[in-house]
Simulated scan of single mutants.
Amino acid sequence: MKTILIVLVFILSGCSVTTPTVTDYRIDPDVTISNKSTNSQKRSIKVMPIFVNTSLATNNMRYRIGEYKEYAFTQSAWSESPNRAIANKLVNILEASNLFHGVYGYKSSKKGDLVLEFSLNEFIQSFNELQNSSSVTLNISYNLIERKTRKLIASKIITKTMQTDSLDAQGGVKALNSILAQTLEETVDWLGENSQ
């Protein structure tokens, strides 16, 4: 009888343990794009899958302390992995920009006249060693290629940093969305200049 009672207490105490909830954050930059052309160009573009390191291909939200230490937030996560969210947002923005006759995501069977390859090299919140200061960094690189000839038309690297308003995941998300919006606006301008 004592054994059954001990097992019952153990089971009930295990059930009463609560795990903290995880907050999912969206990558949803507020991008302002005016129509760059009143008439769509004759060329179309295909946005290839984004190249990222493994940590940016999951929903884990990572942060850095000092130069070398990197961790994952335990109570915060991305609602969609950065590589997918940013690639989808770029396709949507290019469609809205009216720069191209057609804009195709990597899943499309259409090939496009131009191909946009890009790599997300860094997208992270960083704290100093004392953890009393926080900033975010975004680094992205592009190659614009003519599909038929495989000729490189232009390449660009964009790096941006910004201090966060608060020393938590929410402050990091807000700053990352802000510099991503700036980056995507700059990307559209660059494509407009180089896709004629």
Results as ranks from 00 to 15, higher is better:
I4L: 11
I4E: 08
V7P: 01
V7T: 13
F10L: 15
I11R: 10
I11S: 05
S13H: 06
G14Y: 08
T18C: 12
T19C: 03
T19E: 14
T19Y: 11
P20A: 12
T21C: 07
V22W: 07
V22A: 06
D24K: 13
Y25K: 10
R26I: 11
I27H: 03
D28Q: 12
D28W: 11
D30Q: 13
D30R: 14
D30S: 14
I33F: 09
S34C: 05
S37R: 14
T38S: 15
K42R: 13
K42Q: 14
R43Q: 13
R43S: 13
S44T: 12
P49N: 13
I50P: 00
I50S: 05
F51G: 12
V52A: 07
N53D: 12
T54W: 11
S55I: 15
S55F: 14
L56T: 01
T58D: 01
T58P: 00
R62G: 10
R62N: 14
Y63M: 04
R64P: 00
G66H: 01
K69C: 00
Y71H: 10
A72D: 13
F73H: 10
F73M: 08
S76F: 09
S81H: 03
A85S: 10
N88F: 08
K89H: 08
L90C: 07
L90G: 03
L90K: 09
I93H: 06
L94W: 06
E95R: 15
F100C: 02
Y104K: 10
Y106C: 04
K107I: 06
S108F: 07
S108Q: 08
K110F: 14
G112V: 09
V115T: 15
V115L: 13
V115P: 03
L116C: 08
E117S: 12
E117N: 15
F118M: 12
L120K: 08
L120A: 03
L120N: 03
E122F: 05
I124G: 04
Q125M: 06
S126T: 14
F127N: 04
N128G: 01
E129G: 04
N132K: 13
S133Q: 11
S134C: 12
S134L: 10
V136S: 03
V136W: 08
T137C: 06
N139L: 09
S141E: 08
S141T: 08
N143S: 14
L144P: 00
I145W: 03
K151Y: 02
A154R: 02
A154L: 00
I157T: 10
I158F: 11
T159N: 12
K160C: 00
M162F: 10
T164N: 14
T164A: 09
S166H: 12
L167F: 09
D168E: 11
G172W: 12
K174W: 15
N177M: 05
N177F: 05
A181I: 04
T183I: 04
L184E: 03
D189F: 07
L191T: 00
Q196M: 10
